[in-house]
Design a protein around this nucleic acid. Structure first.
Lengths: 216, 216, 216, 216
DNA sequence: CATGAATGAGGATTCATTCAT
DNA sequence: AATGAATGAATCCTCATTCAT
């Protein structure tokens, strides 16, 4: 007996996934823009094609939705990190590449930066809550560790620095420009988004890091 | 709204100012902890000696209170910056001192860091709104410019770097460790608050900056 | 906000409309009784079967509710005006009928009168705000214009008066007795609600208007 | 022993009265503009030279202030009515004069009209509350009664109408144009304040009333 | 007479969420 | 799997008024 009631059964699943992704995309913007408390479920609902009820259907709660957004954005950068192919480069080149990648990623994904800031305002409780995120051991550290080892072996790097500490410094320099763009920009009258500034900063950070590793 | 035209009326005045400061201190904690949207006026009121009504009497609105907090914390760091006496030190020593000061200030004032993050989530609109804050041209830049000039003249610094850019790098390195303590700490299993880590980072940042200025 | 696109969903719909009407009826009384500022949303809520939240669900704000009330009461009188069948009467009879209708309507709907007074205290801003109300070109004017033309043609009316001006006079005489009942009644010791007074006034107004049209 | 502490003692009283009048004038505007519930004590205070406390000092409460305003405005029209000298005119002329005076007073004192509307929204409770106002037996009635008697005796008036009823009609016609200016003006696209309209209405009302008294 | 500081009580409104179908 | 209607519980804010001097 053919199920004539539901001729679109196969596409159902696809639609469902599409709906989920649609909600997620809108929510990402909303949480990045207004924070967890500042974002409004109603406002998110108003921007999606289906109804508000779907948010609860798919994500259970506002917090559940926020968590899903967090998992998505952290997954995004991790995915990209995996595509880096640094082994064919010299240690210095690889390090510079790493800096460039980090710099560009932050520059191009201010919403990621904002969401990370939001999560830190919340003491990182959601990140800790999510098994997915807790297990997301960023490949960046192993990549950097490899670069460090190769550079040390080649006599090009003279610092005894931990890969995590190095990553922290690179991140800090790339993150701050974006995260604190508004306050820093206003206080010191500098347009952090201007192309000239961006390129100068990129080169500067590259030099700071490379210089440090070479030095001492 | 209270009006401070009358310089006499002694004890009253002091109580009023005390009340104001009391509210401000509680609010600073609340906004640092929960952000602007997340903080609850009622919760702030519950922690102060007078009633909630006073918040509106003194600050007009939740946003007005937040703005006053922002002015207070930015005023705080600026006040301290002015006490630095760097002219008697060599350029390198002065630079190190500057880094140490910045590092310590961020380390000891996580609420300042959190509030700045909050304000950036809000695109810095309140900072721009406040004339006091817009005019707060941090003395840090002139101090750094002086150090840079002296170092250059003495042949100790070989970089053509802008004082603002240098300040950005120092700030970035000192800020990130505190602002992103929770996500970074969780993701990379590192306790950013541990004394050993703190000291290592402090030395590291000092070296990164000094090395960069010396280098090239 | 509720949306009435779905014509099916029977019982729900009726309940929703019933709730809406219930709120509207209670609000009409409240606004007529206390004015826009004087009416209390809480007090209105206390008198309806559902909760206060519904007021905001259906009407958005206190002002939105007031506007809905205004539209309802103006719609009410307009609906009745349309039921008048004056063409079969002589011009004089039609004019008298018009006066009687206006008189009775004001007498029987003091809340309408009060709401119009309230709206005038607010400079008519809400009336102007509502497209529905702005487009409510009362049929009364065309009716009166027809009567005037017929009376003129029949040689029974000798005044060159504008239908709008005539309507204003009729309205003024019928409105004032109700709107200013309290001050006028108190100052001149007259019970404007007494049946004898009412009938005397009705006849008097009829005569004033008819006499004027005939006269000159 | 001369009281050197208070050299301005005599002017004190004058200042006090000036302050009272100042408050009263501001309050009249406020209550006329926003009604009793809509007017804000703070807003009134902000417009007067002395402090808000003075309002309570002189008038006891917001309601007390409103009552004082009411007494003042009703006293104003009463005072003017007394200056009318109608006995030297013919009955018809006197009646026309009465209409003209009433018309002009309403036209020139829209705040009086608004305050009377406000008081009626409040069911005239304050007017009844005030002994001053209860005893304010408007001389208008006796004036009209005299005119009616003279006109009747002279065979010029043929109506058996009560002076109070006649006053009501004159008032209604003059009041409504001002009180309902906004709603009527908007609904029928008529600018009630335009000089041409005003003059036409004035003549019209004169004719309506005179015609009625003559007629039958 | 005069005043700046203070306030209890209540006001409108918004929020994330769930219910009935 | 999906939805439009409904809501309890806060949330920010304002009001007329009084206190201490």
């Amino acid at each position: 007996m053919p199920d004539s009631r539901n001729p679109t059964a196969p596409s159902r699943k696809l639609d469902a996934e599409k709906t989920r992704q649609n909600i997620l995309a809108v929510a990402r913007r909303a949480f990045a823009e207004h924070g967890l408390s500042g974002a409004r479920v109603d406002a998110i609902a108003a921007q999606i094609s289906t109804t508000k009820r779907m948010i609860y259907y798919y994500f259970g709660s506002k917090e559940g939705l926020y968590l899903a957004v967090l998992e998505q954005v952290y997954g995004g950068i991790r995915g990209l990190e995996l595509t880096l192919d640094l082994d064919r480069l010299t240690p210095i080149e690889a390090l510079n590449q790493m800096v460039d990648f980090t710099f560009d990623y932050h520059e191009e994904n201010p919403d990621f930066v904002r969401l990370v800031s939001v999560e830190n305002i919340h003491h990182g409780v959601h990140l800790r809550q999510s098994e997915t995120l807790r297990n997301l051991n960023s490949s960046v550290i192993t990549s950097l560790a490899t670069i460090l080892a190769r550079g040390k072996a080649a006599g090009q790097f003279h610092r005894d620095i931990d890969a995590v500490d190095l990553h922290m410094m690179i991140s800090a320099l790339c993150y701050y420009r974006v995260s604190n763009r508004h306050t820093f920009g206003t206080l010191f009258g500098r347009d952090m988004g201007a192309p000239a500034v961006r390129e100068r900063h990129k080169a500067m950070i590259r030099d700071v890091i490379a210089g440090y590793m070479r030095g001492a």
